[in-house]
Design a protein around this nucleic acid. Structure first.
Length: 927
RNA sequence: GCGGAUGUGGCGUAAUUGGUAGCCGCGCCAGACUUAGGAUCUGGUGCCUCACGGCGUGGGGGUUCGAGUCCCUCCAUCCGCACCA
């Protein structure tokens, strides 16, 4: 074959590596542009063709920006800590570092074959101590800072301690855990341990007893975004609720900023919406209810605080509900109800998260025997516990307004509790009326007000009486940051008198120790419990948990700016130059995990002056998933006979997945099939009339079990990397999910052969001419330049591929081999197909890489048309076209059209009501 | 249930602002050439109809000279959230 892609691609990949073509440094003479891919977790299965889709798109954009004179930072690395390597280690005893290294080198070689313009000198691996030193460092900073709501930023803890010494915490408005008020004197009288206990309530990285998602099968806790439908995202193991002392990051401190920051970002609306939902801001009020009838009431002086978005319905509150886990449950329950309440709590505890979700519709609850006093009417309200109230949201307690909340309504009906209508507009005998359209009734001083005004009025009244406040509540929870696992970053934390202290920064990195088993210890400690001498030089024990997956991925984009700096996370110079990521491409699966955490992490680093930008990713594109296209053969039941797809309905058949790599255009390679599985050696086939066995197909997830996995390596071997890159883009819009079907790839491959032929004669001798191009040739080229450039700008790479095909088809048909045209075409094509264009560029006599050429400008002068082909439509339906000079005025066109014989023929004896002429567009004749 | 996205030939898709629906490919059909290759080249290919012509962008309705595009309504598929008070 004349176009020897294998040789060409090897040659240029080697050239780029040897010449460090894509190595970048700070260069103040050029504008910077930062293009980032979400770095991969190097799994044992390697890459399939779906994985590089986003990488190809970002590489095209990087190369394009580079050709336009930008200094483009385009790095790659590995998210290398994580569960699969550790699970594998448990099974095989193989150290996770070893498997991880193997997987990384496989990924690296797969990536290299695709011809990416990465600056590999900046590669990072999250499991490298030189890298996780800075993950640990950031953790220490989080530990040493608190969030001041007054200044709306993180501040050093020293400052907080100074205030405590002066005036206690009475005037502090911080994002903190529940903490009692104390005076300066009280603070000073506290022991160090007591003080540390208090400070822990303010730290942005803190240790607390909380309900966690415990996954027994994985032996670790999981964050909310790692659990879906009550099972772990990785592995699908059941998850249960459990109270444990865990590290948390005070992400909620940044809830408001995380929400507001979305406005400025150039992200898709759907992604922003997912983040908004996850943050879950709701406005309302907290209201405190006094507790009545409890035997210990006088002594306890406890109140129930609830959060509601509908304080206007307070007169409709007929009972209260606490989450079963609520702290007050025990205190308020009178003796004669203790057993019933304890039984109910036991019952709910036993249920896993999954069961709770499954039983969501069934109603259960238990009266505590205690009552609350309605703050306005003074009437007693029964206090219940029920698992329909979530401990983790709001205050874990609600005032139930059955007339205007469907869940309360169902509960009230079930337990026969009173229902009072307070908003007109519904029919409460039928169901609750949850709408905010209506007028307040049966509500004392709120009567007659529309809902919105009533909310204002009642909130002011609550504040005036000191029984409630306006409150903004978030669904977002603080992120649980410990994992009881081995393969993660060790916490730079030790314990003294059971209180956590962080290591001196000079001691970083705290290197992950060797252990002889990756399982929990006999005492039930995490795997680090097996490590010898896992303590500080002073002998204090070190933390046994490790950090979760999102720790290492939260600031990797910052580290790329200055990856080898061993004194700082990033130098000020590097950060000021590269600023933040201009274009980030990755999958939508990170919408609520990585993309929230790294925004939080970045905002914190911004507050403490490490980075200069408040948001990490200015523009973000989610590439669509590439689905698999599976093929099936149809075995006649109880035989070893297979019937072709088109005849299968005549038999009773079982569809069987067949490896897509032995099927071509849905025609089965029968010999390969016999060899594929010993079971089929003697298989018989009922073929269609032409002797071919036709397979069925289906679009499914690309996975081994469906035998529909296609690897980039196979495609590159057969067609080359340029064809792979181009075809991935040709499949359809970047953001859309689409199936991979290798069958279509021939069209793209033929395109490259045509490109090759433009530069070569019949005998494959390089042959281009220095003749002046014609206006026709210039028009073909400049149409393509304009189209491709516009398409790249809007990330519409599929349409630019067709533009290239049109251009090359046209140049081929006129046998254009002129240097002035072809050289520009090469540069235009080089971001998509870097190898073949480098090769032809070199053959054109160029000494320097095409990556350093300039992107061609289109000249509108070449695109001007003398004539416009006007579609002539009758009542909007196109019949034929007529040519008119481009500068001809509408009235003249109208006259000329009506004079045309074909037009007259169409009109016949009908009457022309109206003629519409849209210049350069269309003529419509209304008859 | 709430929120978002998407519905166009046999398939992947195209159609900047409302202006020729189906570009570019795959597949299919026919032909050419050939050391029968899953090669290359040429032509054709939305559907119905011998044709004239008609119908066509998930269904129905509307606005408009003109709707894939705008509005209303319904349906389907996918994704996210889901007792969030």
């Amino acid at each position: 074959m004349d176009y020897n892609f294998t040789e060409i691609e090897k040659k240029w990949q080697k050239y780029w590596e040897e010449n460090q073509t894509f190595k970048v440094d700070i260069d103040h003479s050029k504008p910077k542009y930062y293009v980032l891919d979400m770095f991969p977790y190097p799994s044992g299965a390697g890459l399939h063709v779906g994985h590089p889709l986003g990488y190809i798109a970002s590489d095209i954009y990087s190369r394009y920006k580079r050709l336009q004179g930008f200094n483009v930072l385009h790095p790659m690395g590995y998210d290398a800590f994580g569960l699969p390597a550790e699970q594998y280690a448990i099974q095989t005893g193989q150290h996770p570092a070893v498997t991880t290294d193997e997987n990384i080198s496989r990924y690296r070689s797969q990536l290299n074959k695709i011809g990416f313009s990465y600056d590999w000198s900046r590669e990072v691996k999250t499991c490298d101590p030189e890298y996780y030193k800075w993950t640990q460092w950031t953790f220490i900073q989080l530990f040493k800072h608190w969030y001041n709501n007054k200044t709306n930023r993180a501040e050093p803890l020293e400052k907080l301690v100074e205030i405590f010494e002066k005036e206690g915490n009475i005037n502090i408005d911080a994002s903190s855990s529940d903490v009692k008020t104390f005076s300066a004197g009280e603070w000073k009288r506290m022991s160090e341990k007591e003080q540390q206990e208090i400070l822990l309530c303010y730290r942005l990285a803190y240790l607390a007893e909380t309900m966690v998602n415990w996954c027994p099968a994985l032996g670790t806790v999981l964050a909310n975004d790692e659990v879906k439908d009550g099972v772990s995202l990785r592995g699908g193991h059941p998850v249960e609720q459990k109270e444990m002392r865990q590290w948390l990051l005070r992400v909620t401190a940044y809830a408001e900023r995380l929400l507001d920051g979305l406005e400025k970002l150039n992200w898709s609306d759907s992604l922003k919406e997912i983040q908004r939902n996850w943050i879950g801001r709701s406005e309302g009020a907290t209201i405190r209810f006094e507790i009545l009838h409890s035997p210990d009431m006088e002594k306890l002086d406890e109140q129930i605080e609830v959060f509601t978005t509908r304080p206007d319905t307070i007169f409709g509150a007929t009972y209260m509900v606490l989450a079963p886990e609520h702290q007050l449950v025990e205190k308020i329950t009178p003796e004669d109800y203790k057993k019933a309440v304890a039984d109910y709590i036991d019952e709910t505890k036993k249920k896993t998260e999954r069961e709770r979700l499954a039983e969501a519709k069934s109603i259960s609850g238990q009266f505590t025997g205690a009552y609350a006093k309605h703050p306005f009417s003074g009437k007693p309200l029964q206090i219940w516990i029920s698992d329909y109230v979530l401990a983790g949201y709001g205050t874990g307690a609600i005032m139930a307004v059955p007339a205007h909340d469907s869940r309360d309504y169902d509960f009230a009906k079930y337990f026969n509790l009173p229902i009072i209508e307070v908003i007109s507009g519904g029919d409460i005998s039928e169901g609750s009326y949850d709408s905010i359209e209506g007028t307040v009734i049966n509500s004392d001083f709120l009567n007659g007000l529309p809902v919105k005004e009533a909310i204002e009025t009642v909130t002011k009244e609550l504040e005036a009486r000191g029984i409630g406040e306006r409150k903004v509540n978030y669904r977002l929870r603080d992120a649980i940051f410990s994992r009881q696992r081995y393969w993660g970053e060790p916490f730079p934390v030790y314990y003294k008198e059971n209180m956590p202290y962080v290591l001196d920064e000079k001691r970083l990195p705290l290197v992950l120790p060797e252990v002889d088993a990756y399982l929990p210890t006999e005492k039930g400690e995490p795997p680090l419990g097996h490590a010898k001498n896992w303590k500080t030089e002073e002998g204090y024990p070190l933390e046994l948990s490790t950090m979760p997956g999102f720790a290492g991925s939260s600031a990797y984009y910052i580290r790329y700016m200055d990856p080898h700096n061993d004194t700082r996370l990033v130098s000020e110079e590097a950060n000021r130059y590269w600023k933040n990521v201009d274009l980030y491409i990755g999958g939508t699966e990170h919408a609520t995990g990585h993309l929230i955490y790294s925004r939080f992490w970045n905002k914190f680093l911004f507050d403490i002056g490490v980075v200069c930008k408040d948001e990490p990713f200015s523009k973000l594109i989610n590439q669509g998933m590439i689905q698999g296209r599976s093929n099936f053969v149809y075995r006649i039941k109880n035989t070893n006979k297979f019937v072709s797809f088109n005849l299968k309905d005549k038999y009773d058949v079982t569809p069987i997945h067949v490896d897509v790599n032995i099927v071509h255009n849905d025609i089965l390679d029968i010999e390969a099939f016999r060899k594929w599985n010993p079971e089929y050696v003697n298989a018989e086939f009922i073929t269609g009339g032409d002797g071919k066995y036709l397979c069925g197909y289906a679009i499914e997830k690309m996975s081994k079990s469906m035998y529909n996995v296609v690897t980039p390596d196979d495609i590159i071997e057969q067609y080359g990397a340029d064809t792979l890159r181009m075809y991935e883009m040709f499949l359809g819009p970047l953001e859309q999910a689409k199936p991979w079907d290798t069958n279509g790839i021939d069209g793209v491959f033929k395109f490259f052969i045509k490109v090759w032929k433009l530069f070569h004669d019949k005998n494959n001798r390089f042959n281009i001419s220095d003749e002046e191009p014609t206006t026709g040739e210039l028009k073909i080229l400049h149409t393509a330049i304009k189209k491709v450039r516009e398409d790249i700008e809007r990330f519409s790479f599929n349409t630019s591929v067709s533009a290239f095909m049109i251009c090359v088809n046209q140049l081929s048909s006129i046998k254009c081999n002129k240097r002035a045209i072809l050289e520009k075409l090469l540069v235009l094509l080089s971001p998509f197909a870097p190898h073949i264009t480098e090769e032809l560029w070199e053959k054109c006599g160029k000494k320097e890489s095409i990556a350093n050429a300039g992107f061609p400008e289109h000249n509108p002068g070449y695109l001007k048309e003398d004539y416009v082909k006007y579609p002539i439509t009758f009542n909007g339906k196109m019949k034929f076209t007529l040519d008119f000079p481009a500068d001809m005025k509408p009235p003249e066109i109208e006259e000329s059209v009506l004079d045309n014989d074909s037009v007259k023929n169409q009109i016949g004896d009908k009457k022309v009501k109206k003629v519409i002429v849209v210049p350069k567009k269309i003529v419509n004749i209304v008859i």
